[in-house]
Simulated scan of single mutants.
Amino acid sequence: MFRDLSQPIETGMPTYPGDPEVTLASDATHEADGYATSELRTGTHAGTHVDAPTHTVPDGEAIDERAVGRFAFDARLVDPRPLEPREAIAPDALPEPSDLDPNVDLLVLRTGWESHWGTERYRDHPYLTAAAAERCRAAGVGVGLDTFGPDLTPTAGGAAGSSATACDADSAATTDDEPGGTPSHDVLLGDSLPIVENLRGLDGLPHRFRIYAFPLRLRGADGSPVRAVAEWEN
């Protein structure tokens, strides 16, 4: 069986705070031109996408420098719920490296935050602690998430630029003890481990499955939107 795990790309879709807004507009029409084409303007980290190491590691690989086969993953689903807004996901929420099948190269974390896509609440997703990312590195596995990413995202009051289409009055506030920067990105991308962000449709997936997340061949880029697809035996 196959399932599309990708958020649709469309004008005004949610983007990480400060990232370029996305527009998808008609360029030529059948009525005026006899054919149809469209213009897409997007950042490299819009919607469901993969990060390249150079996203946070200055001398890391660009997206087109990675072999295409490295974007086909043997995945294991991890469900750490219930989770509160902006809750830290600690190492003990993840499998021990010794408990993982050696073929697994991606842990897909189902936080349930995809239900907040299109609202300010989506910014307040749970996040991986640096220690949890270190556990992934020890196991040689990357992560896929139904959130903006493995690190905290600034709240609406902390940064501008999100194109989320609705506000949520319950959006959590930033606290002084929250980690800043991109520590989990740095741990994973520093070891060239994959990160797939803004997944959807994780409910009902089996414990093990394949996931394909092939990026566009963008020369020297730090990431790329993907059409993420899960495959498993019925």
Rank of each mutant, 00 (worst) to 15 (best):
D105S: 14
S38M: 15
T29Q: 06
G140F: 07
F73M: 09
W232R: 04
Q7C: 04
A160E: 08
L193I: 14
S162T: 02
E96G: 09
S26I: 08
T42L: 15
E96M: 12
G149T: 03
S6D: 06
E197M: 14
A90L: 15
T29C: 07
L107W: 09
L24A: 05
E96K: 10
G144M: 02
D146H: 11
R200H: 07
R81N: 15
L205C: 11
D203C: 05
A228L: 12
R219N: 03
D74N: 13
P8I: 02
A160S: 09
A88Y: 13
P206H: 14
T174Q: 12
R81F: 13
D191F: 06
R76L: 08
F214C: 10
D222I: 01
D146S: 12
R76N: 03
A90G: 11
E39I: 12
D79L: 13
F2H: 13
P80V: 04
V57P: 10
D4T: 04
R81T: 15
Y16N: 00
R135V: 05
P82A: 12
C167G: 12
E39A: 13
D170S: 13
H45N: 11
A62I: 06
A131D: 10
D92C: 13
T23C: 11
L152A: 04
P53Q: 11
E31I: 10
D51E: 06
E87Q: 15
T182W: 08
F73G: 03
S163P: 02
L5K: 08
E10A: 07
A139S: 03
A166E: 11
W232L: 06
E65Q: 09
P58F: 07
T174F: 15
T182V: 08
G142F: 04
R86T: 12
W113P: 02
M13E: 01
D64P: 01
D33H: 10
V22I: 14
A32L: 13
L94K: 08
L40V: 09
T175R: 15
A25L: 13
D59V: 02
A172L: 12
A138F: 00
S6K: 04
H30P: 06
P102L: 13
G69K: 11
E84P: 14
P215A: 05
D146I: 07
A164Y: 01
V78G: 05
E178S: 11
D4M: 05
D170Q: 15
T56S: 07
Y16Q: 01
A169L: 11
E197F: 07
V22S: 10
T129L: 08
C136Q: 00
G157L: 11
D124Y: 04
T37S: 15
L188M: 08
P95A: 07
A62T: 10
P20L: 04
R200W: 05
E84C: 13
R217S: 14
G47M: 00
P53I: 13
R86V: 14
Q7G: 01
D19T: 06
F214L: 15
G12I: 01
S192L: 10
D64F: 01
V187N: 04
A46M: 03
R219M: 03
A164C: 06
R219T: 04
E61I: 03
G12M: 02
E231P: 06
G18P: 08
E10R: 08
P8G: 05
G149D: 04
N103E: 14
R76T: 07
P17V: 00
S171K: 00
G140C: 06
